[in-house]
Design a protein around this nucleic acid. Structure first.
Lengths: 138, 138
DNA sequence: GTTAGTGCAAAGCCTTTGCATTTGA
DNA sequence: TCAAATGCAAAGGCTTTGCACTAAC
């Protein structure tokens, strides 16, 4: 899995810059559901001259390479998460404190696939989000 | 159900203006998954002096009153749909042509509720979106 | 007659882009 | 060397807000 990261730049004819290395390393070692702003400020601790544009551009590269996934949780800014270590999963989002939990349910996945197939859709991806109150906030 | 619409303004101490009447009427009679821009241009056919701000403000009122639901399908602009005539449903979105289909699956709903409950969440709402190719585009 | 609502334009956010400068291969 | 990448600032797209004017109650 780490090879995939090491090779995704040279393998696509892209240059391995210090900035990209910093962004990727910090991204992979951060908590999930990171916003671009959070990532930028974390990378700045390691590489102070990093600019927003580079963070956004690198995130886009990661998404295009399938190494990251972009999500919209409705607060207007995108969140990114590594697609490396874990398979597909869904989200439980606390509407009060913003905490995000994850879960997986193969049965739901199956039913989704069936529902789509029945309507003639060829599934490419899907997302399921449940909004509510987390144990701490209810 | 129409009473709910007629009363939602006066019942909250809000004024029933021509603009709001026009926006609500057009909104309720339009296809689902309407963007603010689409709604604005449709309302303008009925009330040419309507401004964007009024459309946005009225949409917000409808959402707060529970008469409309706001959704993000990932293209950066919100879509709105009436919450009046139909119960909860999920979406199939064509990544090529943008066509949006709807479906319902009570079994999926149940499994979602169970998954949330098991993790101590009190569900308030949820959304399930499947992205792929529609029958015409595949 | 008051107070809330409207329309316009300006401002806010998040994200992308243009461009001169820097840097990896 | 030299095209690609960076950083800054400016621009873009959607949405909200400030404010003087208008209209509902």
């Amino acid at each position: 899995m780490s090879e995939r990261v090491d090779r995704f730049l040279p393998g696509r004819g892209l240059k391995t810059t210090r900035q990209r290395q910093a962004v990727v390393r910090v991204f992979l070692h951060s908590h999930r559901h990171l916003s671009a702003e959070e990532l930028h400020s974390r990378v700045r601790a390691v590489y102070p001259r990093i600019g927003y544009a580079t963070v956004y551009r690198t995130l886009r590269l990661l998404v295009e390479a399938g190494l990251a996934e972009e999500r919209q949780f409705g607060d207007g800014r995108a969140r990114f998460e590594s697609a490396l270590h874990k398979g597909h999963h869904d989200h439980l989002i606390c509407v009060k404190c913003g905490r995000i939990a994850e879960f997986e349910n193969p049965r739901i996945e199956e039913l989704q696939a069936t529902a789509a197939r029945r309507r003639g859709f060829k599934v490419r991806s899907h997302k399921l989000e449940i909004y509510g109150l987390c144990p701490q906030c209810r």
